[in-house]
C-alpha cells in the first residue's frame, strides 16, 4: 500500500472523487470512445450510407477486404517516407528535449526576472503562428525571384541557390523550423515545473557546498524528471505521426524535395486525394495508432522498470 492510503473517508471519498471525473468521462465516452467503432472501416470496402441503410448499418453491408487497405503503405516508395517520419521525430524529440530543458534552466537562473519574462514571452511567440504563415516567412527569404537571401546572393555576385529544388538543405531547414516553433512552448512547461521546486532545497544544497551546476544536476533535474519522462513517453507514442502542416506547407509542396519531405501523413493525404478511399485513410490512421500504442507501451514498461513512480500508467 502506497503512502496516502491512510486518508479516511472510504466509500464517501471515492464517491465524491468520482463525481469530479464525471463531466470529462462522459465527454470521453461520447466523443472519443463511441466513434472507435469506425476502426473497422480499415478492413472494409466502405459503402456509402443511404436512406435504406443509414450509418452505421451501411458498415454491415460493406464487404470485408482484410488487409487490402493497408497495402498501399508498403510499396517500394513508402520505405523512404517511413524513414523520414521516424528519423525526423527521433531527432527532434532528443533535440527538443535538450534545448528546452537547457533554456528553462537558464531562464530560472537569470537574476533579472524582467528579462527572463521578456525572453519567455518572445520565445513563445512562434507557437501562435500557423505553419502556413511560417511557410510564408520562409518564402520571403527563399523565394527564387524576390527572396531576401536570393537577392543578397545575386547582389553579392555569388551563385544563387535554387532552394525549393535542392533537397540537401531541407533536413536542416525543417529542423530549424520545428525547433523554432516548438521550443518556447516546452520551455514554458519545464519552467513552470521548475518554479514549483521548493527554493529551500537549493539553499540546503548550497550550504552543503554544491556548486550551481551540481545543484542543477541534483535538485532541478530530479524534479523535472516526471515531466521529462511523461513528455518523452507521449512523444514516442507519436513517433509514427508527423506534423502535417510543417511537411506540407513549409516546403511549399515542392516536388523535387519529396525525398526528404515526404512523411506518413503527407503520403497518406496524397494517396487519399488521389483515390478518395475512406478505408485506406482509416487504415493508415489505425496503423499509426497501433505503432504509437506499441511504442508508448514499450516506453512505459521500460520506465516502470526503472522508476515506477514516473510511469504514465
Amino acid at each position: 500500500m502506497k503512502r496516502g492510503a491512510g486518508i479516511p473517508g472510504g466509500a464517501k471519498k471515492t464517491f465524491w472523487l468520482t463525481t469530479m471525473m464525471l463531466p470529462a468521462t462522459i465527454w470521453l465516452l461520447l466523443i472519443r470512445y463511441l466513434p472507435m467503432f469506425g476502426i473497422m472501416m480499415s478492413f472494409l470496402e466502405y459503402k456509402l450510407p443511404n436512406r435504406k441503410m443509414p450509418f452505421p448499418v451501411n458498415l454491415l453491408h460493406s464487404p470485408w477486404v482484410g488487409l487490402d487497405n493497408f497495402s498501399f503503405l508498403f510499396t517500394g516508395e513508402s520505405l523512404n517516407m517511413i524513414r523520414n517520419t521516424l528519423g525526423y521525430n527521433a531527432l527532434w524529440i532528443v533535440l527538443g528535449l535538450v534545448i528546452s530543458v537547457t533554456f528553462a534552466i537558464m531562464m530560472s537562473e537569470i537574476t533579472r526576472k524582467f528579462m527572463a519574462k521578456t525572453y519567455q514571452t518572445l520565445m513563445f511567440f512562434p507557437y501562435f503562428l500557423s505553419w502556413v504563415v511560417v511557410a510564408y516567412f520562409l518564402f520571403a527569404f527563399l523565394d527564387p525571384t524576390n527572396g531576401m537571401i536570393v537577392r543578397a546572393q545575386k547582389s553579392a555576385g555569388g551563385a544563387v541557390i535554387d532552394w525549393y529544388n535542392t533537397p540537401v538543405y531541407w533536413p536542416f531547414i525543417l529542423t530549424i523550423c520545428s525547433i523554432w516553433k516548438n521550443t518556447g512552448y516546452s520551455t514554458v512547461l519545464y519552467l513552470s515545473a521548475i518554479t514549483g521546486i521548493d527554493r529551500s532545497q537549493y539553499e540546503a544544497a548550497a550550504v552543503d557546498g554544491a556548486a550551481k551546476w551540481q545543484q542543477t544536476l541534483h535538485v532541478t533535474l530530479p524534479h523535472l524528471k516526471p515531466m521529462i519522462i511523461i513528455l518523452l513517453i507521449m512523444n514516442v507514442g507519436k513517433i509514427f505521426n508527423a506534423d502535417f502542416g510543417l511537411f506540407w506547407s513549409v516546403p511549399m509542396n515542392s516536388a523535387p524535395l519529396f525525398p526528404v519531405t515526404q512523411v506518413v501523413d503527407t503520403y497518406v493525404y496524397r494517396a487519399y486525394k488521389s483515390t478518395g478511399n475512406v478505408g485506406m485513410s482509416t487504415a493508415a490512421g489505425f496503423l499509426q495508432n497501433l505503432v504509437g500504442f506499441v511504442c508508448i507501451m514499450a516506453a512505459n514498461a521500460i520506465v516502470r522498470r526503472l522508476d515506477p513512480d514516473s510511469s504514465l500508467f
Binding site: D68, S71, F72, T75, G76, E77, S78, N165, A255, P256, F258, P259, Q262, Y267, R270, A271, K273, S274, T275, N277, M280
Partner: peptide
C-alpha cells in the same frame, strides 16, 4: 487498381510539375 494508383500518384507527384516546367 486503387492500391497501385495511391502509390503511383505519389511517385508522379514528385516529378511531373518539375519535368513539365523544365526545372529538373
Amino acid at each position: 487498381v486503387e492500391n497501385e494508383i495511391a502509390a503511383v500518384a505519389n511517385v508522379k507527384e514528385a516529378y511531373a510539375l518539375s519535368l513539365f516546367t523544365g526545372a529538373v
